[in-house]
Design a protein around this nucleic acid. Sequence first.
DNA 1: AAGCGAACTTACCAAGGGGTAAATTACTTA
DNA 2: TAAGTAATTTACCCCTTGGTAAGTTCGCTT
Lengths: 214, 214
Amino acid sequence: MATPRSKAGTKGVPRRDRQQQILEAATREFGTRGYTAASLAAIAAQVGVTKTLLHQYFGTKEALYTACLAPVGERILDAVTTAMGSGGTTGETPLRVLNGIFTALEGQREAWFVLYDTTLPAGGEAAARAAGYRGAIDRLAADGTADLLRRSGSADPLDADALAYVWRDVVATLVRWWTKHPEQSPEAMTQRCARLFAAAAALTAAPGTVTGSG
Amino acid sequence: MATPRSKAGTKGVPRRDRQQQILEAATREFGTRGYTAASLAAIAAQVGVTKTLLHQYFGTKEALYTACLAPVGERILDAVTTAMGSGGTTGETPLRVLNGIFTALEGQREAWFVLYDTTLPAGGEAAARAAGYRGAIDRLAADGTADLLRRSGSADPLDADALAYVWRDVVATLVRWWTKHPEQSPEAMTQRCARLFAAAAALTAAPGTVTGSG
DNA sequence: AAGCGAACTTACCAAGGGGTAAATTACTTA
DNA sequence: TAAGTAATTTACCCCTTGGTAAGTTCGCTT
């Protein structure tokens, strides 16, 4: 066996496995850096492979992103749907949703940010698909937040929009905090959230709130 | 006067004014697209000038960013400091802080995201300076959140970290929502936040919360 | 009018990104 | 052992981006 002049040729990794490896690395890269800043070369390097292989297996960068998006979207959507579907006190719902999300995300927490990537090329198909998943999830969440506002006496539609917006980003923030504390289990996160909610309640319980109404 | 063959030459705009124009455009661009995705050419085009002029007036991209950062950092830091300094019920403090931030940001709301840009090149000087401002602000906020947790009975330092983290991102989210609703005045925003707080309180007031303690 | 400095551009370079065509290597099968 | 096919790389192309060097135009002064 003479010294191979080129490193080309099979490495004994079947296509399916390689695709899976690539998808995982890509999800990590897209999730941490965002679509625009993510580099195909970096993803390829993580897998120990060349940029070209990504193109041959998945096509364009946007197609690769889409391939990462689908499973994440399904998983999160499922988690939220079942969490909101199962009966129980309304007060428990947000924590159930969080718990569902944490559980669905365990093992690949950055995946969340693939779904909520803000750097997608506007007008592209990737953005459209991501918006599709987010829309479905947001519709579920909107029910909950609208319910909250009704009970608290506000009928302003902008209030509803803002509250849904904030809630969604709170979830994102909690997930981001979680990615920075890898040792935390999903259950531990859920319980921590419960404590944080309680602390927030202590705030609004204080007297003299400035609840002017325009 | 023959047709000028080149568009070079002075346009009658003194250096100081031009620098100001550039800083405003750059702040907008950095704030909306993020440092990495922001393009010097795009900034220059907004001002009606060439990329090269930016370099001559501010140096590298990172230096231009730093020039944008300083005034924003000072303003936000000032706003938060005075909002937390002035006495009053503790329950009012978060709203006072928000009001201070909204007021400080009016006229250039995207500026917030210059301060909290996540795409800065790690290890660079820009990142260091931004971290400096954020650190000062976060220390102020940490006092408030720690106080909250103490009152709610949790002594876990990670809880404190998470709460401060969430609070900061809630502010960011509210600012982002605000940028999408340009017609809203700072005062209107503050009052809306008050209503949202009340709605959130309605949540935690519900029975059967899962307050397990690991 | 000649000169000078401030304001500004044209023309360029190197690096990095996405993307493609054409090899190259290795495993399997006849 | 020769052929075929799957897996993978090499060597490109083109575009954008940050960055630099060398002009070019204008207005003011002497």
